[in-house]
Design a protein around this nucleic acid. Structure first.
Lengths: 226, 226, 226, 226
DNA sequence: CATGAATGAGCTTTCATTCAT
DNA sequence: GATGAATGAAAGCTCATTCAT
């Protein structure tokens, strides 16, 4: 080591992306937290997966808890607001909005690692009440509000039957949560001979929901057309 | 506290209650595991909640892991077979069977602490693959089979429309899982101004499910009657 | 002791051997201590092997340490004094005395479990210095003294050559200790294709010792005659 | 303590000495294991004696058992092969080889802490059968083989009388083991007014052995010259 | 800034010992 | 006297966190 006479010649420029570090750590942490759970994920593993040393992790996040919180925060707000705009600006029928909306949700969030956050929150909400509150405020409530608006609009426009909107919301949320949980359940996947087909699932659920919500259910749509 | 007329019962330390211990420990463990998760529950806490010392816990369960497994097993198989008999012997219409079945499930399992097991398994399946397999075999699969039979029978009898039975099963499972998760989610409960009404939820879900499943949906049933 | 008012009424008939209990416990303890070592022997095991409960063990011995001490004491003094008489009263030649003495020692002590005590003391003397001192006083020193006398007598009688008696003692002790250690070494026994033949060993060692000790070694004796 | 002229060196906590740690820990462990036995030595003590914390110990040795094994291995194989070369390449008479060999053994191994390993193995072989097998294979057997060769050569060359070589080996091993055990027996040393003189002991033993082994024992050599 | 060796609080588990029955 | 269920101090080991380099 001391006998490297000449200084490392090739460009000390482009000082490797310092800015990227936190993002890499968050990505690694998301992956592992989702994969193994909070407690079973060792901070050293996260660092290694991010390609840095243990010490560096704590340089950017003062504790494992803070890292966890950052992971949750990171994977929630941003992506979501973007999507909700789609809903806000939609011009078509409420029926189409629901169909489109859930599909887009699945493509952009549900099918990605980010949806693992939901499972994480379910598991850890008791250990991170403050974070759960944050999640509730930033994710659960906005979704509720959004769906509420959509449903109310559909009712007002005469597309949907009059209903307890709250229950209508659950009608939509429940299957999506189910889908997310199954997606992140390796055992279920591994053991079942027929792993779940997310697209078919979503279609069937939407059909059913709309069938139930609509005043005069279009008989065709309700019948699954393979 | 003030109205404790009788003097403090001077609870005798070192009570010998060999028969009762395992059940007490399992109850305590179920409570804490559901409340805080597996990793965050310290074995000494479980012992204390069960009114015994740390050592006693290990007298009955050789390790924390074994305790966890016992908790899962204890709250599953027994209770479960009992219920599935109800379904098997049912004589009425498939529609009624579904209504009745889910209500009974809620009363006997869903609304009790035992349903916390489901949430536990979702959270910990990555850490206990072997146990997850057990759960899958003992619980998930039987439920699937049961629902499959019910749905197929309804289709054969002309009560339900022809459908992809697999998706029909999800139609039923998803809301029940959602209900269970919300039940064990203190934050959701605490924050919402309107905590969930399980009965209303179940009714609404069943109505919707049946509405979608049935050939000629009775328009009345589908309309929530407040 | 002072409060023994009435004299022991002499057997309220065959009251199942209360007197035997300590002896049984000591025997069990000796066996296990020798077999597995002090620390690796659990007091419950000792009790079980003695056919009593854990509590009973502590009824007779106030602690595991006391039990250990009792085991050592029990297996030392008694047996030994008996043997040393043989030596004291011997009338024949010193050569024969040595031959006979070691053989008897092997038969009565060396080949029995009691010799495990020696190995135990070697292992535990640091943890039980007081006991080691006792052992030294009760066993090691008397043996030394005995051998010293024998050797000195042989020298005085002109049977043995003049020598440093201390070294002469070691000449005798070393092989006997070696024999005892090997006897209690299961691994050595298990692995060797040719397990040790104690009689041959003793004979060879005595021959050698006597050959070295004697003034005019009989050339025949030195040659092993199978 | 009073004559420490220089001020307390203010030893820096948290020294980084990756290279040196294992050796320091092994030395500490050897000392304590030999001193107190395996079970009675707490891992924290070992760490403290090595000047590190408990955690550091487990950084280098995955368990107490592994530490023990490392201690045994460390103090055996290395040192041992080195010595056996001396024997292999020896050119002189078998008599001289034995004299020289045992002296060198004593200087390089017997008199050092490393010989405590032998005592350790005797004490712990029941608890570590696998390790005992290793020791047997790596140490006991090679020694046997070595001595066997030496004795057989001496016989073939006519230096030694014909004999049962196996017994001849014991003739040599027994006193050396005795010496090692006494060396590590503080009580024996403390209580005796005349602590053992290893050199005298070895000389006396060798003389005796050679006297017994040789065809025409030189009468002078047999007589101890003070 | 980055590293990774070092730390030690904290957790599981064991087992000698106690004591209600 | 016996028993064995209950106890809790003590030991091994983990891993988030620190800090010398």
């Amino acid at each position: 080591m001391p006998n490297s006479i000449s200084p490392p010649p090739t460009k000390p420029k482009r000082e490797r992306r310092k800015e990227a570090r936190p993002a890499e750590l968050l990505a690694a942490a998301l992956h592992l937290f989702v994969e193994k759970g909070y407690a079973a994920t060792k901070s050293e593993e996260v660092a290694k997966l991010a390609g840095v040393s243990k010490g560096t992790l704590f340089l950017y996040f003062s504790s494992k808890e803070e890292l966890f919180k950052a992971v949750v925060r990171e994977n929630i707000s941003n992506r979501f607001t973007e999507i909700s705009k789609l809903w806000d600006n939609y011009e078509g029928s409420s029926t189409d909005l629901l169909r489109m909306g859930l599909r887009v949700w699945w493509e952009r969030i549900g099918s990605t690692k980010a949806s693992g956050i939901t499972k994480l929150m379910i598991s850890e909400e008791n250990n991170f009440p403050e974070l759960a509150a944050f999640y509730h405020e930033e994710v659960a409530r906005p979704i509720h509000t959004l769906l509420e608006k959509v449903l109310q609009l559909g009712i007002d426009k005469g597309e949907f039957r009059p209903m307890d909107v709250q229950q209508g919301i659950y009608l939509i949320l429940a299957p999506m949560l189910y889908l997310v949980i199954r997606k992140h359940s390796p055992i279920t996947y591994a053991l079942k001979n027929n792993p779940m087909d997310a697209d078919a699932f979503i279609k069937a659920q939407i059909d059913n929901i709309l069938y139930g919500l609509s005043l005069h259910p279009p008989t065709k749509a309700a019948t699954p057309s393979p």
